[in-house]
């Protein structure tokens, strides 16, 4: 009897986590999924109503705006962070003195809350007293840098802050990837007289495909969940110019009292993330089994 109990200990240890995951992850997903298929407004209504909420969602110009913004923001954020991160990693891979210090400087934004980042950049990009007035003071009177208050450009201002925060992290990923390339291959290429840039382009970068992939996954994940930065910098404005799915969902859930819309927008966000993550996880797991 005691021996039986002893053998159950691992299961007993994992039971609370199992219960928590079942309820708080899968149960909650199910709840939200169900609500997204009802006519719930301020209070949950559990009568099935088909895809009505999704129809409302896709008919809503504000949601269109949010998804469009996500496309622009996501693409630019991912692209710029990757390019900048890779470039910084290559620069740092050149036998740099004080590499540790420089790396620390490039990466510290990742330790900050998005709210702190947003506050800092909001101040710097503020047209009256920020960078715009700084450059004007230097004598360029016609200089305009008022993206933050320009409905057509505000989303780019958020991209700048987001890239500032995440590119150092991408650099760290790439640097680790560069350093893990087999040194003998590089030596062999050097002996063959291949120029440095060719070694990067033809040997090192192609072997880092998995690093590119995981950087992409992390950045895409960050982009889709982006919420804090927008709240801190623009609050979704001017108007709805910088609304993202996450801010839309929050507004529906907590200020508009429209549970059905909140649920359906959350479900769409989750499906977008899983559309990206699941194939990646699947290929990762399969690669490990081979």
């Amino acid at each position: 009897m005691l021996s039986w109990l002893e053998r159950q200990i691992p299961k007993i240890i994992l039971a609370p986590t199992f219960a928590a995951v079942t309820v708080f992850v899968y149960g909650f997903i199910a709840w939200t999924a169900w609500i997204s298929l009802t006519k719930s407004r301020l209070l949950p209504n559990y009568d099935f109503a088909g895809l009505i909420q999704y129809r409302r969602l896709f008919d809503n110009p504000r949601w269109d705006m949010a998804m469009g913004n996500l496309m622009v923001f996501g693409l630019l954020f991912i692209l710029l962070s990757m390019v900048l991160g890779l470039w910084l990693a290559i620069l740092l891979d050149q036998q740099i003195r004080a590499e540790g210090l420089i790396r620390t400087i490039y990466l510290y934004p990742m330790a900050l809350s998005m709210i702190v980042t947003g506050t800092a950049w909001k101040w710097m990009l503020n047209p009256g007293l920020g960078l715009e007035s700084l450059v004007q003071r230097w004598g360029f009177d016609g200089f305009r840098f008022d993206w933050l208050v320009d409905p057509d450009r505000a989303i780019y201002a958020i991209v700048i802050a987001a890239v500032w925060q995440a590119s150092g992290f991408v650099m760290a990923l790439f640097l680790a990837g560069l350093r893990s390339v087999d040194g003998e291959i590089i030596k062999a290429a050097q002996v063959d007289g291949i120029p440095d840039w060719r070694i990067y382009a033809s040997i090192i970068l192609p072997s880092m495909a998995p690093v590119f992939m995981s950087a992409f996954i992390v950045l895409a994940h960050l982009a889709i969940k982006s919420f804090d930065l927008v709240v801190a910098m623009t609050g979704g404005g001017p108007g709805y110019a910088t609304d993202l799915p996450a801010t839309y969902m929050y507004a529906m859930a907590f200020s508009r009292g429209d549970l059905g819309q909140a649920a359906s927008s959350a479900m769409v966000m989750m499906m977008v993330i899983f559309a990206i993550v699941v194939p990646y996880l699947y290929s990762e797991l399969r690669a490990k089994h081979d």
Binding site: L14, T17, F18, V21, F24, V25, Y26, G27, F28, I29, W31, T32, I35, H221, I224, K225, P245, A246, M249, Y250, A253, L259, A262, A263, S265, A266, M267, M269, M270, I273, F274, V277
Partner: peptide
């Protein structure tokens, strides 16, 4: 399988759990 199920939670967009939570 349990580990996979726990891991899955790492990718969850928290918006999905806000209201039930």
């Amino acid at each position: 399988i349990l580990f996979g199920a726990i891991l899955f939670g790492c990718f969850l967009p928290f918006q999905v759990v806000l209201m039930p939570m």
